[in-house]
Design a binder for these strands. Sequence first.
DNA 1: CTACTCTGCCCGTACGTGCGGTCAGTTCAC
DNA 2: GTGAACTGACCGCACGTACGGGCAGAGTAG
Lengths: 227, 227
Amino acid sequence: MTEPVVAPGRARGGRRDEILATFTRHVAERGYDRANFGDVAAELGMSKGTIVHHFGTKHRLLAEVQERYMRRRLDEAHALLARLPAPEQRIAAFVHAGVRYSTDEPATTVAFQREVVRLTDEPGMETARAQRDAYRDLVVAVLQDGADAGVFLPGDARLRSLQMFGSLHWMWTWFDPAGRLRPGDVAAEFCRTLLRGLGVPEDETATAADPDGPVARCVAEVCAPRP
Amino acid sequence: MTEPVVAPGRARGGRRDEILATFTRHVAERGYDRANFGDVAAELGMSKGTIVHHFGTKHRLLAEVQERYMRRRLDEAHALLARLPAPEQRIAAFVHAGVRYSTDEPATTVAFQREVVRLTDEPGMETARAQRDAYRDLVVAVLQDGADAGVFLPGDARLRSLQMFGSLHWMWTWFDPAGRLRPGDVAAEFCRTLLRGLGVPEDETATAADPDGPVARCVAEVCAPRP
DNA sequence: CTACTCTGCCCGTACGTGCGGTCAGTTCAC
DNA sequence: GTGAACTGACCGCACGTACGGGCAGAGTAG
């Protein structure tokens, strides 16, 4: 209907991607439990059976959403680490990126964040959980390295990472991508408080937090617009 | 059975409080959607009808959980503000208190935090939402006053409050009250990063963050053990 | 004291609905 | 032919909640 480019039955991934996108939006809006096959199918003008045919179970569908999301986030994280050497730049980049997600892919980001707890509980989420842990480990390592190098004041790197992730992951409950609050401003404020809190001097903090500064620009390049 | 003190039929709130407590625990463990009357009733050895009799609907039950929780938090907040005059002490107190909740009332805290989004969406939650907003306004006012007074560096008080609440509200996804991590240590680390990030000098930061310091002690007195 | 009525707590059951998942079958590209 | 995409009817079940009734204690009249 909105995808007449490729012949039906042989579209890129079939209707698989459409299902994934619509399901993701429903999870973002209502949560996993209240999202259901019937509504998704109706919206896409297909049968419930089609969704089952492609994904098997609802759990598997969610798992695929989480895995795809974390795959992109991990790729970006590695690209950022490769370009930015300094610990305070790297932390700032993670914050800028974390805020960008909320506007670049609002639905997927909200779906991921509000259902993140299922990564720890439910079976079948091992891959996504491992990806999430890998991402967190990257941040912890930067925090630890920075503290070891004296760039950051001594402190518990793991707790600091949780403090930082909390601020970012909580955004789904209050941030409106369509609102007047610019993501760059949110990231800047978060960066300033966080980096100062880690003991980074004022001028490095200001540069790294600047929404038009080098770190933010690097993040913008790496986090390309959605295909 | 475990409540032989008062004659049946005239117990303090009847089985009402038991229902509330058990339902709260189920919401904390499984989330609102997966918590159900059948399991709660079975665990308490009563009929589903009894729950309906006392609360009418499932939504009303959740609303009551949220309202009771926020009432306690608001009372504590006002008590803390009355005892602690300095902005950095007040912010530190909010952080210490926020962490304490996770161990003092783990079930209710998790239930509240993981279902907080329903305060904004669902009807019937107006009271709880107003309480939550009032709590946030208290924190925003402290941050604003501190910035106006020059105790904190200039910055967006509202964004700072959201950054702070994010760290605390996210705790339910990772903090284990029975684990080896002491709540005081978490609060101390969070306080240090946050207060330094707000521009508070190192010695005031250290005093306010100290888990055995005056602020933490004041919080411990105000947040009395459960009755 | 007795008998009665009223009332609030509680039970058991039954109903309606919504949802995840199954399955037999059709269409269509290769 | 072969197999993948897709359909639509259907199943079973879990869950919220409506309903009718039982029962015990309080109040009251005699």
